[in-house]
Design a protein around this nucleic acid. Structure first.
Lengths: 229, 229
DNA sequence: ACATTTAGTGTATTTACTACACCCTGCCCC
DNA sequence: GGGGCAGGGTGTAGTAAATACACTAAATGT
């Protein structure tokens, strides 16, 4: 084998765009950095990948250390490797996004995050490193993916109303949707279970609650069914 | 800044799935490896990324060293980083695919490639490292991308017939398409220029030749037009 | 000239998409 | 306890897009 020592001087990190949905708004979780560079800036959660750690595992670890959550939806999006993107040397980063139910989320005290906070996406301004570019790539990926895979449900509590679901899609896709057409289409797929329960304590007519039937989806999917919204 | 030295001991490579279309078949370019590990195996072209080189540049370099081609369509797909994927240490690889016109392709003698050869995709068997997985990911990406972006033309000579174009789509999508509906749809987009020329020297009725109008596409695209096939 | 091979064309049917407005139900407040 | 308020919930008609389908045309080779 040729001498490759000169190549083994790089590092890589994972960065994770963590999406949540709350209060009718799509949000992402940012942390106030506790280390240089960019000390005290709000940035994407991320960290170096350990030598004996797979990439997906590293992305999961970052998420779990920060939030305590396991088994969340996680998808690799793109790798960013501009030569000068990190001051400490050659560091490429593998960007992931994940979808969490904000109701499950519980902030963990953590060495890498002094403070974490949910931000509505339009309110996110310039981020350190190339994190703005990473956010954009992940958001774009989510926009496309959410139309062809039933991953929106990862952002909602187990029981949800059709209006909540519609608002979720509206904030991801950044459009308005027609109520009747939306309901027609989503119900026609037969992937929602009507729980015969209604909201409580709302100051208006309570809405019916539904649940997503993941098993049924898997079954249909394996037979060639394509979710499409 | 905390001591991060322990992290700066990794390397990364790019691997490139180079697609071509010839003889009615979608093909990929493999090289017979000239180095350990996996000496003499057919594998994907790829190499280490130099310390001062961006990722896209490295993928372009690999392609150019091998084929002499510049300015080809290139897209990053996914990064593979299993801990044990490379015997020389921790090496993650960023997978790209590229689309070349086989007619332009001219084999370059190269240190990393003793020999290169086009393989029809179904005839590709097990590849070294995780290259089979990489191929699958890139092929899947191409299948999706080709339906929503006019990138198929990158694989055809500048002048082509509608039948050639249809066969190209059929071999990427691995389906049969209806001739009349295909022509109706593609011509309705008004992105093909009828050159008023016909094939010569064919033992049947010669077909008209068309050219893809990339400028027109860019113009329409910027106004919200979506290619969709 | 005739057999072979691929090129090229139109219509009818079905299916999916879009646009659109009113009544219902429960709570709150006066 | 009656009226107002705030969403919840429902159907149809028109339009556009997708599909299925079969014959004639033009060149070459024998």
């Amino acid at each position: 084998m040729a001498n490759l020592d000169g190549f083994f001087k790089s590092a890589f990190t994972v960065d994770n765009v963590i999406f949540g949905f709350d209060d009718g708004d799509l949000k992402i979780l940012l942390i106030k950095r506790g280390e240089e560079p960019f000390l005290d800036y709000w940035g994407l959660p991320g960290y170096f990948v350990y030598p004996d750690e797979n990439l997906d595992a590293a992305a999961n670890r970052v998420l779990e250390e920060l939030s305590g959550l396991k088994d969340v939806y996680l998808e690799q999006v793109k790798t960013f490797g501009a030569v000068d993107r990190h001051p400490a040397g050659r560091v490429i980063t593998v960007a992931y996004y994940s979808l969490v139910k904000i109701s499950d989320y519980k902030l963990n005290a953590s060495s890498i995050a002094q403070k974490a906070k949910w931000f509505s996406i339009p309110k996110v301004s310039e981020l350190p490193f190339d994190h703005s570019e990473i956010l954009e790539a992940c958001f774009n990926r989510l926009k496309r993916r959410v139309r062809t895979r039933p991953i929106g449900f990862e952002l909602l509590p187990p029981k949800f109303t059709l209006t909540e679901l519609q608002h979720l899609y509206e904030s991801i896709l950044e459009t308005k949707l027609d109520k009747r057409n939306f309901r027609k289409k989503i119900l026609a797929m037969n992937l929602l279970v009507d729980l015969n329960e209604t909201q409580e304590g709302v100051a208006h007519r309570p809405a019916r609650l539904y649940q997503f039937d993941g098993e049924k989806y898997e079954d249909l999917f394996s037979k060639g069914f394509n979710f499409e919204l």
